[in-house]
Design a protein around this nucleic acid. Structure first.
Lengths: 194, 194
DNA sequence: TCATAAACAGACAGACTTGTCTGTAAAGTG
DNA sequence: CACTTTACAGACAAGTCTGTCTGTTTATGA
């Protein structure tokens, strides 16, 4: 007989999907356990609260996205190509998730102010993405002291593309951001070009 | 005796404040009517549902933001200065609202998919901002066929600054976006500069 | 002054929420 | 086999939510 995945895994996976699709605050525990085909007592045996389920979910999301960034960094592409690849990946992510945008941003918009634990996770996730761009722009223009500013610009283009892709349910913001990033990188590595 | 503002006005004003502070889905009607010092029957006399209150709120937000953009367009500043002014205004807005970000984006993250009425409002609000940037970039470089692309880039920087200002509770994303926008504008109006 | 409209207070319905609890059944381990 | 962990089923508490309803009070205008 096929061993079913553990109840905990089913709960976390189901919750991840539902949170991503409709948002943390719009999904209740009852629905999660129904769809995960488990019992409420089992849920509370593995997670002390709904909030802890949220942090586990976000942790998994962060780890996966860090792996993606690390793979890009480890690849032998040129810096500008690495950046381009990351924007292409964003487009795929949005399409795969029905343009639901960033789980961190979406969650941050609904949890209350005093939930410091989740707020910190949001901040560090965003700063990790920013640091990723900083690494790449430093690689791109090792002599330029504008690497940091360029990294911030790319980070903001990336965020803007994510959120407007979500708002407009469209891929054009990602493509526009990608094109802008490509041009900025080209200009930075060859400042004399038009 | 001082005439108190009408119950409807009090409800809408109170709801606007609470929705902005904590998000549409996190604020209940009971809290709104308590804080607005009115009765539930009165609420339902003026608004058929909570959702209709939401659309009224968003409508008012949109109208105010359109006025701000129109004022900038009507001013006698140079195009690049108009753009700069809009970014400065964003920083003020975020500070005044405790970095709660864009009401439209925040609401879009929690309302369900089939609520087409609100989805449309989000889309047209965002496209209005984009059109604003397009107008300015067309003014900035009347001959350049890259005006549209530049407008989109500025739009995405603006969105990115808004959402990351919210996520990080900080003003640096706005300042970084502003600086990047300034540089892009300068380069566009004088393409030979470094 | 009288009539009409608006606002009031608040009970109520019915469905939802998170979380606790009791007890039972199954599965893995010595 | 016996023991222990894990999962299951689901009632229950205590609270939330939106929305309806009844009836009273206050204000406004003819």
């Amino acid at each position: 007989m096929i061993k079913r995945s553990s109840a905990r895994d089913r709960i976390l996976e189901t919750a991840s999907q539902l949170f991503q699709e409709r948002g943390y605050s719009e999904v209740g525990i009852n629905e999660i356990i129904d769809k995960a085909d488990t019992a409420k007592a089992t849920f509370y045996q593995h997670f002390p609260s709904k909030e802890s389920l949220c942090t586990e979910w976000l942790k998994a999301v962060h780890e996966r996205s860090e792996r993606v960034r690390q793979e890009i960094l480890d690849s032998d592409l040129a810096p500008a190509e690495k950046i381009d690849r990351y924007f292409v990946g964003l487009g795929q992510f949005l399409e795969e998730n029905d343009f639901r945008g960033c789980p961190y941003t979406n969650t941050g918009a609904v949890i209350d102010e005093e939930c410091a634990c989740i707020r910190e996770k949001i901040e560090s996730h965003k700063l990790a993405i920013r640091a990723f761009f900083h690494k790449l722009t430093a690689e791109l223009c090792p002599t330029g002291r504008r690497a940091k500013a360029l990294g911030d610009t790319l980070f903001l283009l990336f965020s803007g593309a994510t959120v407007e892709g979500q708002n407009l349910r469209s891929l054009w913001p990602v493509e526009a951001a990608r094109a802008a990033a490509g041009e900025l990188c080209a200009r930075e590595s060859d400042p004399t070009a038009s």
